[in-house]
């Protein structure tokens, strides 16, 4: 056979043309302009505020130094909660997913927790953890935990048992099965769970701040609403949107490195011996 070559990593996916980028930018400008015009022409700025007012509010918020404080608090709550929730969810999901006997035992409890709207636990968390940062951390951790746990548990349970049997025939001991089959296999599901769970860290922190808090981006939004300061509400929402986008970008980067094999190029055809 002729020495086949493997196409390097990147799949020839259709890339957005520069023209598309201009179009998207145009659409964004159009939307902002429409927002401003509607607010001024129809005097709806009490309900919708306006981009100029929101920008001014953002500027004030930043200049006072309060934005940095709020941002730091909310990000810490969400971040610490995210790490705790991901680690615990990945670990327990992995263990219960692989130890089928244990998984079967806990299945009814897992299912009843699955259907519970977890947001409803927020008041209880105030009771347990007070109104400080701990409350938001635990709440965010709980939400993330369940997302990562369910995804890992269900994904891992689908493993082909023949694959494990085959590894045993090849000479694998218990430890080999865990390190060379189970963990890499579950990694895909843990990552999927983490990706789904990431927004929930922020949701947890914000909802926690809504319920009871003294600072943070969520607290600012709630406070602004009670003063009918729509511009400040929108300013808070825009800050949240920016945080989400940055987090998602970071996660994508991490995932593409950890699971490089998933994005390997498609079928090798040159020099295919079959």
């Amino acid at each position: 056979m002729s020495g086949g070559s493997i196409p390097s990593g990147s799949t020839p996916r259709r890339r957005a043309l520069p023209a598309d980028a201009f179009l998207q930018l145009g659409l964004a400008i159009l939307a902002v302009a429409a927002w401003e015009i509607v607010a001024r022409a129809f005097g709806t700025d009490f309900w919708t505020s306006s981009p100029s007012a929101v920008a001014a509010e953002l500027g004030r918020w930043a200049a006072s130094g309060q934005l940095a404080v709020d941002l730091q608090l909310t990000l810490t709550e969400a971040g610490v909660g995210f790490v705790i929730g991901s680690v615990a969810g990945g670990l327990i999901g992995f263990i219960l997913g692989w130890m089928t006997r244990l998984g079967d035992l806990f299945e009814p409890f897992i299912l009843s927790l699955y259907t519970l709207p977890k947001i409803a636990l927020a008041p209880l968390f105030v009771l347990w953890f007070g109104i400080g940062a701990t409350n938001k951390i635990m709440f965010a951790a709980m939400l993330v935990f369940f997302m990562v746990f369910f995804t890992t548990y269900q994904g891992t349970r689908q493993v082909d048992r023949d694959l494990v049997e085959n590894a045993r025939l090849l000479g694998a001991g218990k430890w080999d099965i865990w390190t060379k089959i189970a963990i890499p296999y579950s990694a895909v599901w843990i990552f999927t769970g983490i990706r789904i769970g990431l927004p929930y860290a922020l949701i947890g922190a914000i909802v926690g701040e809504f319920v009871a808090a003294e600072a943070g981006v969520g607290f600012r939004i709630k406070e602004a609403t009670s003063f009918f300061n729509t511009a400040a509400v929108f300013a808070g929402l825009i800050v949240l949107m920016c945080i989400s986008l940055v987090l998602l970008g970071l996660l994508k980067l991490l995932e593409s490195r950890a699971l490089a094999w998933q994005s390997a190029g498609n079928r090798v055809s040159a020099g295919d011996p079959t």
């Binding site: 056979m1 002729s2 020495g3 086949g4 070559s5 493997i6 094999w261 390997a264 190029g265 498609n266 079928r267 090798v268 020099g271 295919d272 011996p273 079959t274």
Partner: peptide
């Protein structure tokens, strides 16, 4: 098995016959 040159390929890049090899 005639897979020289494909050492660094991932399974999803291979055809059924190559996987069997």
């Amino acid at each position: 098995v005639g897979l020289g040159g494909f050492e660094k390929a991932y399974p999803r890049q291979l055809s059924g016959g190559m996987l069997q090899r």
